[in-house]
């Protein structure tokens, strides 16, 4: 199979996944209790007539399959509908907030890879020495500290005490620093483990032993060959967890009062605002799929073995 063919298969699979996720979310939200119409009207003044009218206006009086078909024909036309809560158009709303979330996801993934790979490699090289133990501790702290807590801690230390970075907002690179630290450490925790493991495996593989035997310096062996192999798990983990990182922004965006689709979707779920939830799920699915296609591509760049197998 050529690379192009392979990519076509992957992309068509991806499209199926994205629409599948929309279908799934449609039904999950449909099952949510509570009537969105009633939450839109003021109970002290609403009349049953107003309720019925509004329901009709939103098409919520139709049977579920009609709503379903209608929604999907609209999405195919690029129309994501409007928010039930404040009748805002969904597409522009998401496009407005997506960049902030993407920026944060990107910086925290980058930080996660840098910290994760560095500590993972050090950990493997100095196996069972103090640096190994320390790295593993850091990794476990990363995955066992809730982001809202570490976020507040960072605000207290770096905003209130030192006054180095802003505590909130989404304007300017400075506002990215603390949220990135908070979210990046979670990703780093996962990566440290994976990199360490695969480094250890690689170190004991015959080709490394051969390289050593050939008289390459230890540093050359480690950085040129072993590290290259260790990058693969790191990137895969990021690829698989990019969705989680984006979802992590739900909490982080609230803590740091950042704009972004995380906060939008959290509000939307509470309000049962289906069009908005659908819109966000669609876009996060798209991001997930694109990132994972890139991850697939990057294997062939990083790992010569994969390249050969094409």
């Amino acid at each position: 199979m050529t690379l192009v063919n392979k990519m076509i298969v992957k992309i068509s699979n991806a499209v199926v996944s994205i629409f599948g996720s929309l279908v799934l979310v449609f039904f999950i939200i449909y099952l949510l209790p509570g009537d969105p119409v009633l939450s839109m009207l003021d109970p002290s003044t609403a009349t049953p007539e107003m309720v019925a009218n509004l329901r009709k206006e939103l098409g919520l009086d139709q049977p579920v399959y009609v709503q379903f078909v209608e929604y999907f024909t609209n999405v195919l036309k690029g129309n994501f509908g409007q928010s039930i809560v404040n009748s805002e158009q969904v597409l522009p709303k998401i496009l407005e907030h997506l960049p902030a979330t993407l920026a944060l996801t990107l910086t925290s993934s980058a930080l996660a890879v840098v910290i994760g790979v560095t500590l993972g490699v050090l950990s493997a090289i100095f196996q069972n020495r103090w640096i190994d133990v320390l790295s593993r501790f850091i990794g476990l702290f990363g995955i066992s500290m809730p982001t809202f807590w570490s976020g507040i801690l960072l605000i207290l230390i770096f905003s209130v005490y030192f006054n180095w970075f802003p505590a909130m907002g989404s304007e300017g690179w400075q506002t990215l620093v603390l949220p990135t630290l908070s979210l990046g450490f979670v990703g780093a925790g996962l990566i440290i483990r994976m990199v360490r493991t695969s480094m250890l495996e690689v170190i004991n593989e015959p080709f490394i032993v051969t390289l050593r035997a050939k008289g390459l310096t230890e540093r050359m062996v480690m950085y040129r060959h072993a590290l290259r192999n260790a990058m693969i798990p790191a990137i895969t983990i990021i690829g698989l967890n990019i969705g989680e990182l984006m979802a992590g922004t739900v909490v982080i965006e609230t803590v740091f009062s950042r704009q972004g689709i995380g906060r939008i979707v959290a509000d939307a779920i509470m309000a049962k605002d289906l069009p908005v939830i659908q819109g966000v799920v669609f876009f996060s699915a798209v991001v997930y799929v694109i990132v994972n296609l890139l991850v697939d591509l990057s294997y062939s760049i990083i790992d010569p073995r994969v390249r050969r197998s094409h």
Binding site: I152, I155, L156, V160, A167, M168, F256, S257
Partner: peptide, 8 residues
């Protein structure tokens, strides 16, 4: 978030 508001 309370702590952030006061921190700000």
């Amino acid at each position: 978030e309370e702590a952030t508001r006061i921190g700000s």
